[in-house]
Amino acid sequence: MNEKLISVAMCTYNGGKYLKEQLDSIINQTYKNIEIIICDDGSTDNTIEIIKTYSKKYSFIKLFQNETNLGFVKNFEKSISLCEGDYIALADQDDIWKVNKLEAFLCEIGDNLLIYSDAIIMDGEGTISNNELIRPKGNLVKGRCNKAFLFTNCVSGNTLMFKNELIKDILPIPEKITYHDIWIAFVASSLGTITFTQEALTYYRRYAEQITSTREKNYKSFIDRFQTKKASNLKSAKDIIDNLSIFETLEYLDKDIKLIIKESLIHFNDFSNSYFNYKLFKILKKYKDEVFAIKKDKKRLKYIRRISYGLKAHIISLFTI
């Protein structure tokens, strides 16, 4: 097993504050046959200095500096394209990995194209919580489960590793995809199977402003609340259209998922004018255990209704809450 090279694709941008902790956690992995490919997207802090110091000490760390800012999705595309390993694991610049992460992935990936884990949330100061990113509020999924990624995602990019053979199918990462991780998970679970480890193997750094934005709704007035909710719903609809339009182009999808995508696109392309799409509701209800596998059983019907609502129904709901 030690003959297998694992490439760690990392992207950096002004990450000097936490970068050393992350690099140390990767370097100190129990599995040693690794290379670390770092693509920097134009950092102006001490990020480059830190990486160069590490690369002088560790020859398996390779730095590539972008001439122009690519953005994090295209920067990950570049980093993945430079990997030479049998397996590729993605790394953010500010997390911390458990020491056995790569060894566990390699032992458990088996015939699957991709493996991932949950992540343990820590704050900006590195205080580790008892909360995981997905569980227990949601589920992790495995197998040939591409329907689960149509509207939601449980495969965070900083927690996954995939086989090199998947590169040809995921690159280039489509321009309009919302996030690289949902694209990788969808393709992997369409072409083959994915799996996960029961143990959460990444400490995910969540900042105070992220927590505040998800918990507090600081609306100045009802009009402010109305405009904010409307903008949020329209953006969500656009993101769904972008993702599904890209998924729809893949030739190897089965007829069931093609039907779900087709009817969903009809609905969301008319999202601004509609109240409720009963046809889509019936289709989603038929496949609810696959499409909403990431959601807990008791909440699946709620999400089916929410997806089937048009903008007008969402607006009306503001007056009934």
Rank of each mutant, 00 (worst) to 15 (best):
L259T: 14
K282T: 10
F271T: 03
H267M: 05
E263S: 07
L265T: 03
K285A: 12
E290L: 08
E290P: 02
Y278C: 12
L265R: 00
L259V: 12
I260L: 07
Y287P: 02
D270V: 08
L265H: 00
L259I: 10
Y275E: 15
N277C: 13
I260F: 01
K288R: 13
N277D: 11
N273T: 12
S272T: 14
L284N: 01
K279S: 14
F276K: 10
K282N: 11
S264G: 06
E290D: 15
F292D: 02
D289P: 00
N273P: 02
H267R: 05
N277L: 03
F276A: 09
F268A: 01
S272C: 13
F271Y: 09
D270G: 12
K285F: 11
H267I: 03
I283W: 01
N269K: 15
K258W: 00
D270K: 11
L284R: 01
F292E: 05
K279E: 15
K279Y: 14
V291W: 04
K258D: 01
F268R: 03
Y287G: 04
L259D: 13
K258L: 03
K286N: 09
D289G: 08
I261V: 09
N273R: 11
K285S: 14
S272Y: 13
S264Y: 00
I257Q: 06
K286W: 05
S274F: 03
K288T: 07
I266L: 11
N273Y: 12
H267L: 05
V291S: 04
Y278R: 14
S274G: 14
K258H: 03
K285N: 15
K286Q: 11
Y278D: 13
K286R: 13
L284Q: 02
V291P: 03
I266R: 10
F292Y: 11
I266M: 10
K288M: 07
S272L: 12
D289K: 09
L280T: 00
S264M: 01
N269T: 09
N277A: 07
K286I: 06
N277S: 14
I283S: 01
K286E: 11
Y287H: 12
S272I: 14
Y278I: 15
E290G: 06
K288N: 10
D270I: 03
K262A: 09
D270F: 07
F281K: 07
E263W: 03
F292A: 07
D270M: 10
I266A: 11
K286T: 10
Y275D: 13
L259N: 12
K262W: 06
F276T: 09
K279G: 10
Y278V: 15
S264I: 04
V291E: 04
D289N: 15
I261G: 02
S264L: 02
F268S: 00
Y287Q: 05
N273K: 14
H267G: 05
F271V: 04
K286P: 04
I261A: 01
D289I: 06
I257V: 15
F271D: 00
K262V: 04
E290V: 05
S264T: 09
N277E: 05
